[in-house]
């Protein structure tokens, strides 16, 4: 059995107390909600924080409010199971319900939260290994070393953004509320990420992600497709999230195509979206947009299956995601 390193656990009762604790403890502390990502990483010594601040006791973190017309507020501590089964999400933000319901296993979804999934550590199969393994191979730059083992000549880390909900929330145009003792700010989900495998989030170390804010769903449709080996357990090795709004004649007025698990951040395929705006969805326009979007997928050999394969099927998955709107009769 791999064992957790020793740590002190703090249990704040409300957000202000949590922010205060985090400010006091500084970089010694990490936040934990469900712990489904953090604790295994701690067992493998990717993280060894002396202090954990548990967010489970904060009642407001479990809140869901709002409507499809006005937009919704989802507390960071809402479980993935709750999201996957929520009737409003299923009806109006189906991509989010699908993504939440595709994370890992039912048991982990019962514990894992939306905030935790969004802030999932980036993954790499040279990094998500035990201390023994990483020691024997010589550590990588993301933890304890100074080179990238996937691309040894690379000056940067190529760990992969592997959260299912991240590309979906970017495609939905969602935001997050970040709270600290210094105040609070609302940041578009897209701006929460940066292209850096080691430090993939723009969130300051004293900030707590308290809620996810979904914009109005009126006029929008969404879809999420996930590539993985099995029907359960697996992190995405490709995620395709698309949100689309179309005018009455079927002309695409807005579309956001976002790829997960192809880089250290959710990749927005803007060129592909541009190709579709003002067009009707047809097999031809979909093919053109898919080919364009797939060019943004530049996988490396640091996840399941080979990079060539993941690259090869990106076009297929993007085409299928866009074709979903055709099949669902996208003109509403």
């Amino acid at each position: 059995m791999l064992r957790l390193p020793p740590f002190q656990y703090l249990a704040p009762k409300n957000l202000a107390e949590a922010a205060h604790m985090l400010s006091q403890e500084g970089e010694r502390a990490m936040l934990v909600a469900g712990g489904t990502d953090l604790y295994p990483n701690m067992k493998r010594r990717q993280f060894t924080p002396p202090v954990l601040i548990g967010l489970r006791g904060i009642p407001t973190f479990k809140n869901i409010s709002g409507s499809a017309e006005e937009g919704m507020h989802i507390g960071a501590g809402v479980t993935l199971t709750t999201l996957a089964e929520h009737p409003l999400l299923l009806a109006h933000y189906p991509a989010l319900a699908t993504a939440a319901g595709s994370v890992s296993t039912p048991q982990l979804r019962n514990v894992g939260t939306i905030g935790g999934n969004l802030l999932l550590d980036t993954r790499c199969n040279y990094y998500n290994q035990t201390e023994f393994w990483r020691h024997s191979i010589g550590y990588c730059m993301k933890k304890d070393g100074d080179i990238c083992l996937v691309a040894p000549g690379s000056p940067r880390c190529w760990a992969i953004s592997s959260a299912d909900t991240a590309p979906v929330l970017v495609s939905l145009g969602a935001s997050v509320r970040l709270v600290s003792v210094r105040g609070e700010r609302i940041v578009p989900v897209q701006d929460l990420f940066r292209d850096d495998g080691i430090h993939p989030y723009t969130k300051a170390t004293d900030e707590i992600l308290s809620e996810v804010i979904l914009p109005s769903a009126t006029g929008w449709q969404s879809v999420y497709l996930k590539l993985r080996r099995r029907g359960s357990f697996d992190f995405p090795i490709l995620g395709v999230a698309v949100s689309l709004s179309a005018s009455e004649d079927g002309t695409v007025s807005e579309v956001r195509i976002v790829l997960g698990a192809v880089a250290s951040y959710p990749v927005v395929a803007k060129d592909a979206a541009t190709l579709l705006i003002g067009q009707r969805l047809t097999p031809e326009t979909i093919e053109a947009a898919s080919t364009s979007a797939a060019r943004r997928a530049k996988p490396l050999d640091n996840a399941d299956l080979t990079m060539n394969y993941r690259k090869q099927v990106a076009t297929v998955y993007i085409r299928r995601a866009l074709s979903h709107f055709l099949n669902s009769n996208y003109i509403k």
Binding site: T105, W133, I137, R229, R230, G231, S232, F233
Partner: peptide, 28 residues
């Protein structure tokens, strides 16, 4: 369909755990 212990060129196991070593689940 899915199970295989993989090694790097130094003979080290690349997928020593249930996340990366693919045992079929009940859903499969």
């Amino acid at each position: 369909l899915s199970e295989e212990v993989k090694f790097d060129d130094q003979g080290r196991v690349r997928n020593a755990g249930f996340v990366d070593y693919k045992v079929m689940s009940t859903l499969d």
